[in-house]
Amino acid sequence: MNIRKRRGTAVAVGTLVAVGLLATGCSAGGTGSSGAPEEGPVLGALSIDAPSGAGSGYDQTARAIEQVLTSERLAQRVQVTNTEGAGGTVALAEFVGMSSPDDLMIGGLSLVGASITNDAPNDLTELTPVARLIGEYDVIVVPDASPYETLQDFLDALAESPGDNPIAIGNQGGYDHMWGGLLAQDAGLEATDVNFVTFDGGGEALIALLGNQVAAGISGYGEFADSIETGELRVLATASDEPLEVAPDLPSIADAGYPDSALVNWRGIFAPPGISDEDLATLEEGFATLVESDAWNEIRTTNGWSDEYLDSEEFAAELQEQTESTRQLLEDLGLV
């Protein structure tokens, strides 16, 4: 009896170790890029926090940065951590207490919004913006069967009877909702009059659109791309004022007549508050090199991210302005 028990346990443990070894072998092969760099890298051993779970947009951005900083030998070592919670405000609250220029964090438009809607004690303007990096753009689409051909058609109908024209969005108070609020104002409506229906992300919104449950939907271009190609969805406008890099034929919001309603879902990199000017200059240099590398541009294109680079100073000014305009917009949407 005793011997049998031991054998059972040993088999279980043996399997565990075998799996461990196998998987270690694979992931060691996967990380690649070993060998000593010819010159010392610009940046030290960095830790980049993605203020959301693995697989999220912030996480993908952080991992892409990790990949390129390592392969281009711009940093000695990069470790990505994930701090989930409350739209990123949990991570933000922890990050404002940090001081080392090697601790970095990803931020973006949705975190600007979450700080406001959650009434969080901190916002991104308290950090040191290093560089704005990339962006993604929403599109507003209608099902193929919809009577609306242009954004103006839809906005007119929306102004007429907002209740009968539900608009699917991917989350409450996020980028989709904000841009929807801007469009509502273009239609001459109070943003709170619009019948926004919140789904769990663009995928569920897509199902509702294909099933003709809603009049229109707002989500990232990527979520709808294939159905747009097959003609099942019709794009009324993109959220960009220039044609999209990934789909240049789609009407931009400027084409539709509302250039002021462009809104980008940007993501950028932040350092802790109060780092020295030299440290900031080093970080800026590192990330300026990053965005010019081919490796970065390849990852960027694959992911459908647009180049939204701004250096530290421009980024800080833009962020300040956007934090205020976002607060106003969220108030208009009745979320603050």
Binding site: V13, L16, V17, V19, G20, A23, T24, S27, N82
Partner: peptide, 14 residues
Amino acid sequence: VLVYLFFAKTLGIY
């Protein structure tokens, strides 16, 4: 230690 080796070192769970 075994748990640590498998989940932290192999799968990269923090």
